[in-house]
Design a protein around this nucleic acid. Structure first.
Lengths: 335, 335
DNA sequence: TTGTAAGCGTTATCAA
DNA sequence: TTGATAACGCTTACAA
């Protein structure tokens, strides 16, 4: 009599116990709870009832082991503290949860060896990976692909036939900003970029300089050491030392703009400060703060997250899909 | 001939393959790689060599299934976008990684049913849970304890004989601030708290009011609708409508202070603004920005994270430990 | 439509 | 010190 009602110490309810309670086989329980295969309505009901009565929860470790794929999704993120990134992280993790995936958070720093990251991902048989990290993620996604793990890149230049990408519409955003500077009748606009820019930063700098040239507006590029508040503040000092003060400043992201604004306000009289039109990109929460009132380009991190998870899901269902690129719409927020 | 060298499709290397290559049993491989049980130096070396040659990685799903405990740790966080929280999240996830745990990120919102959270945690046999969420986490941690899952609470009031807590030293911080206002010879200090405060907010409000009373300084409490920038801005309006303008304002956290400052600067002349001493609590990055230069109390999120993970580790090793409370030191940052 | 049984990759037990 | 072997809890052919 192979009746094995091992009363677990951990009070962990197993599919077998549910099966026993419902008077069906363990297989029927599995079929019911994973919505696969044939189950009669009657059996189904009995299972569902027994399951909820016993407080049964599918063990995802076991399921993952069996299917060779867990529903964990690696979330490779750098610079978590950075207003734009933390927004993104929030929306991404929520989008994953809504789609029955679970975010396995992997913070990366410049220093950390990327092979460790790959290791972690593989050890958990993640069913996908979303990368927003700035560090060249090539090594990471190549390895993922070797292991048949779907990858989605967010705001990255890298192209690969088997990875999907989500990009915000930098071209449209820059066009809107260029038009803004044109309407404001600016003559000379400083472009605040960074020494080692991320894809977005570089792309925006290039597009902007080009468009301004088309409009016959002069630009001069200032490269801050880092793309954050301090970087913006330092760029401001450089801007102030220019032979003639520009009447416009385009910061390749909002974070830079905040530092720039504060530094300029600190060093210039209110009237001279007001003569400089400043814009950013991203529309982080701070851009709307009273002290900044920054004109910028909004890219919805929610849409971004939704698109990323959607692409991931599609590729999980069909791993042989061609790599797609989804462009997220942007709007001008004039303040 | 039970030779089973199933060349995996996914190129997933198994312990069996390593064992075969090393000419030992699967058990020996396991013992070597988990540092448990007896293995001769010779066998050990052969295993290690074969493992690295084949690129073997322990399957943590299988390990977790077997041990009834994964090395995943639930990170229950609310309000990810919020400068202080995202710092905390960053440091926590890094601390977990350093200790060979993996953060399973679980964002919570006021609305979300906490039973879903518990579900997720249980389904993955997490070996612990760290909660920083503001929503009353009682239901979550009670369930965790029922399932023998160690819990660490960060900056939460809740007491329970089996959960550990990490708290920042609010009492010391408030004492430092009280002294600051005394030295500045303030007569009337506004206290900016919130309607439904988190533990920290409430605790700070109470302590501060009490200490100021001891020093004979008048206080009046203003409750903002939310503890964020907007909340601070709204509190400022209320402050401005007071019969006599206070000469000090203590914000129960920095985030509120930023909104307060901006709103006051906007509505008051520079000279009148300067007459009000403003302080915050937490020392978020923005506190040091040029526009704010906020005097505040620094609590190190790194220390906090380190303490939390340490407590967790200890309790995982010995689940029957009494609940401990670790207090994190704070300093005054005068700006 | 159902149940049996064979894995999934580990670790733990126990006899050798 | 070693190596079978039995779990861990689930999914899924396959047979009934």
């Amino acid at each position: 009599m192979p009746k094995k009602v091992t009363a677990q110490v951990t009070a962990q309810v197993t599919a077998q116990e549910v099966a026993d309670a419902a008077g069906v086989s363990r297989a029927a329980v599995s079929r019911t709870l994973s919505n696969s295969g044939y189950v009669s309505a009657q059996a189904r009901n009995k299972v569902l009832q027994a399951a909820s009565a016993l407080g049964y929860r599918v063990n995802h470790l076991a399921r993952g082991l069996n299917k060779l794929r867990s529903d964990l999704v690696g979330l490779v993120v750098a610079d978590i503290d950075n207003p734009f990134r933390s927004q993104q992280l929030k929306d991404l993790s929520e989008a994953l949860l809504e789609n029955q995936y679970r975010p396995l958070l992997i913070p990366t720093t410049q220093g950390r060896d990327s092979s460790q990251v790959i290791d972690m991902l593989m050890r958990y048989s993640v069913s996908g990976v979303i990368i927003t990290s700035d560090t060249p993620p090539a090594e990471i996604y190549r390895n993922c692909i070797r292991h048949q793990v779907p990858v989605v890149l967010i705001n990255k230049a890298d192209q690969h036939p088997k990875v999907d990408r989500v990009l915000c519409d930098n071209a449209k955003g820059i066009a809107l900003l260029a038009d803004f500077f044109r309407q404001a009748q600016c003559r000379q606009v400083a472009v605040i970029a960074t020494k080692e820019g991320s894809y977005s930063i570089q792309c925006r700098e290039r597009l902007f300089v080009q468009q301004m040239a088309d409009l016959g507006i002069r630009t001069s590029v200032i490269r801050a050491p880092k793309h954050d508040y301090q970087g913006g503040a330092m760029a401001a000092l450089e801007l102030l030392s220019m032979p003639s003060l520009p009447d416009g400043a385009f910061c390749t992201n909002d974070y830079l703009a905040l530092g720039l604004i504060d530094q300029l306000k600190d060093k210039l009289s209110p009237s001279r400060f007001r003569k400089i039109r400043i814009t950013g990109f991203d529309d982080i929460p701070q851009a709307s703060w009273l002290n900044y009132q920054l004109t910028t380009i909004r890219q919805s991190t929610r849409d971004l997250a939704a698109a990323a998870v959607d692409l991931l899901k599609r590729r999980i269902d069909d791993p042989d899909l061609e790599g797609q690129t989804e462009i997220i719409d942007v709007q001008l927020v004039a303040r």
